[in-house]
Design a protein around this nucleic acid. Structure first.
Length: 194
DNA sequence: TACGTGATCACG
DNA sequence: GTGATCACGTAA
């Protein structure tokens, strides 16, 4: 079943980032739903330097400062769309970057969008999965209870022992906050980014 | 290991 | 207005 706002509005971004593992991200952008199981996430909060929200509200990050339960989508390195899930209440700027999925429905469609012939390459990274799902900045701020993008609980349980946490990727500029173990992934899953 | 790519932000 | 920087992916 589709997760509702009470899941996203809680005040603990790292707990939510762990709980998202094993949930199903579904996108229905061009009249065909495609989906994948979330296997890798990263938590970001305004209290640490790794986050876009650290220096306060700007045009780009303003949805992080709004109510949780919406998407934060931005362009990275001029090329890649990044999909994040905003959590917590108004003016508690937190978000979770979805870094990798295990493909479920619509694999043909996702391979076509990605223009690759290996299923391993379609959603095994944050820029890849948005391309596979058809997600871009037009969806910035969209509700995750909408009929375009949402997250489902299909009863898959990931035990605490099956979760690995490490420092986050690509945020060396954050100084000691780059060491926070706020990246989470399903141990041994083949689609975790490298 | 290098670099494309363009929005964004902190300057002025 | 301008320039440095960037929550990546790919080829090499």
């Amino acid at each position: 079943m589709k997760l509702n706002n009470s899941f996203y509005l809680r005040n603990n971004v790292t707990v939510i980032a762990r709980q998202l593992l094993g949930k199903i991200l579904v996108a229905n952008i061009e009249d065909q739903a495609v989906s994948g199981m979330i296997v890798e996430t990263e938590a970001y909060s305004e209290i640490e330097k790794g986050s876009h929200a650290y220096k306060g509200k700007t045009k780009r990050n303003e949805v992080m400062f709004g109510l949780g339960g919406v998407a934060y989508v931005y362009l990275c390195y001029g090329v890649h769309e990044m999909f994040n899930i905003v959590t917590n209440g108004v003016n508690k700027a937190e978000a979770i970057l979805v870094r990798a999925l295990q493909p479920m429905e619509g694999i043909d469609r996702m391979m076509k969008r990605r223009q690759v012939n290996s299923v391993k390459k379609i959603t095994s990274g944050p820029g890849k999965l948005t391309q596979a799902l058809g997600i871009d900045r037009n969806l910035n701020g969209i509700s995750l209870t909408s009929d375009k993008v949402w997250i489902e609980d299909r009863g898959i349980i990931i035990k605490s022992k099956g979760i690995v946490s490490t420092p986050r990727i690509g945020i060396d500029y954050a100084g000691k906050d780059a060491l926070l173990p706020w990246r989470f992934f399903i141990k041994g899953n083949e689609w975790v980014s490298k």
